[in-house]
Write a protein that binds this DNA or RNA. Structure first.
Lengths: 138, 138
DNA sequence: TGCAGATCGTTCGTACACAAATGGATTGTG
DNA sequence: CACAATCCATTTGTGTACGAACGATCTGCA
């Protein structure tokens, strides 16, 4: 009992970061052409339809500065395009290009594989349990 | 049944990132003077004792390029110091300074609060279950 | 109507994260 | 003993993250 029973290895933050790292490596092994954030933005755009840049950021949990960089790179890759919103001159309207929709359609099955492979060490009931527990920590 | 049942919001990678974001915000609210990585490196150093820079990186799940930046910033803050390892000229010996040890001793209780607060929405048994499930995905 | 307060996108600065390349030091094996 | 394979630290380049500050625009409410 000298007072210090803290062990970094079992702290939730540290474990979370390591699991994230493993997921990232599985992601980039399966999808090399886009990063997870770029894919998330493109997916949300194709799932939900076009939106303003900041709204897309909120939908994908990225702040204004971050989503800007992501959109810039997606634009450079010709997967999305932007135009000023005529109804609100502050807004930047973002929509997928044809190539963007095709890319998403092609990558979506791989994204499922990524989720599957990340959870592979767990039984189906355990996967559900994990997702449900994590969902309460958001 | 048009073929696409992918939903970004319930994918493990996306949820993991969001939980991580929440944890980060809890962390910086409780510990403003260090980032999670800087604290992890300092903690490991104080827990396990001095080591080489790369070894510390492995112990804290940071690659060589990342741990270098973290150590540089800890050095700038006077919390660690480095010296060439006489036994192996490739190695950079890293150890906490007195201020580093004091800082760790002062921050360790806060780190416990951070873990506690992150897991706060879960009951004790659920916390154990979550840590155990996550541990299998590392 | 008018203006205070909110929202939008942008920029700057700091801090990870990792791949790839480099050059020096060490080790295992023949 | 030599030397190829390995390990160490560093640098460069790209891509998140987020806080803070900025100017332009919009909205609610007095």
């Amino acid at each position: 009992m000298n007072g210090s029973d803290y062990r970094l290895d079992v702290q939730i933050g540290f474990v979370l970061r390591r699991v994230n790292q493993r997921h990232l490596s599985i992601f980039s092994k399966n999808i090399a052409e886009l990063t997870p954030r770029q894919f998330a933005a493109l997916a949300k755009l194709c799932e939900t339809g076009p939106s303003s840049q900041n709204a897309l950021g909120r939908a994908t949990a990225m702040d204004a500065a971050t989503i800007k960089g992501v959109i810039d790179r997606l634009k450079r890759a010709n997967l999305v395009e932007t135009s000023p919103d005529p109804g609100d001159l502050r807004r930047l309207f973002v929509e997928p290009t044809t190539a963007g929709r095709e890319t998403y359609a092609r990558l979506e099955p791989l994204a499922k594989v990524i989720s599957e492979e990340t959870l592979e060490p767990l039984a189906p009931a355990e996967r559900k349990a994990l997702l449900s527990l994590l969902g309460r920590l958001v």
